[in-house]
């Protein structure tokens, strides 16, 4: 049960209405619509950070799903379990990212493991990530990629706390997929 009413197209404030043009924009938009001036700048930002970029879709879904699992964000884990499968991550990989299996067993590539280690360190904190974790990820990605995937982790943290604190509901379509694919 969401802590605030999710605004539908009929109640969406004027500056928010463009985000409803293609139908139900989802609960994050429907909640942010309460403060349209925030929605107007947040959505383009999220689109750039979470959307297609120089990082591969697979890398991005590893970061988002892992961060969400570490933060125990039910809404984001549900949503990105489906998104990760659509990004061609295997069932074993998704289970490991969700914390239901060992990472080492599901991700034989050291570069993937260093990435996940970085995400865990950034997400869990506190303080600066350990130097050996930073060194490992720096050895496998370039400087720009490190900046981007760190920002992606931080942005996912923001969304995790936002969605969890407000109790945003998983969409019916996501619930259907999770049920069909045996995740629930």
């Amino acid at each position: 049960m969401s802590l605030v009413p999710l605004l539908d197209a009929q109640q969406a404030p004027l500056p928010a209405q463009e985000f409803y043009a293609d139908g139900d924009p989802g609960p994050i938009v429907a909640a942010l619509a309460h403060v349209p001036e925030v929605l107007e700048v947040t959505l383009p930002f999220l689109g750039v950070v979470l959307g297609p970029s120089a990082l591969s879709l697979r890398t991005k879904e590893i970061v988002i799903l892992r961060t969400s699992a570490v933060l125990a964000c039910r809404y984001c884990v549900d949503t990105h379990t489906v998104a990760a499968r659509d990004a061609d991550l295997s069932v074993d990989e998704v289970r490991a990212l969700r914390g239901e299996a060992e990472v080492a067993g599901a991700f034989p590539d050291p570069a993937d493991r260093s990435l996940i280690g970085w995400v865990d360190a950034v997400a869990l904190g506190p303080g600066t990530p350990p130097p050996e974790v930073a060194a490992a990820v720096s050895a496998s990605v370039g400087e720009a990629a490190l900046v981007e995937l760190t920002l992606l982790t931080a942005t996912t943290l923001l969304l995790n706390r936002f969605a969890t604190s407000l109790g945003l509901p998983t969409s019916p379509e996501t619930l259907r997929r999770l049920g069909e694919e045996g995740w629930r």
């Binding site: 605004l7 404030p13 004027l14 500056p15 309460h34 349209p36």
Partner: peptide, 10 residues
């Protein structure tokens, strides 16, 4: 409160 003609909270 009806919000469909809201401009900003600020």
């Amino acid at each position: 409160l009806d919000t469909e003609l809201l401009l900003t909270r600020t």
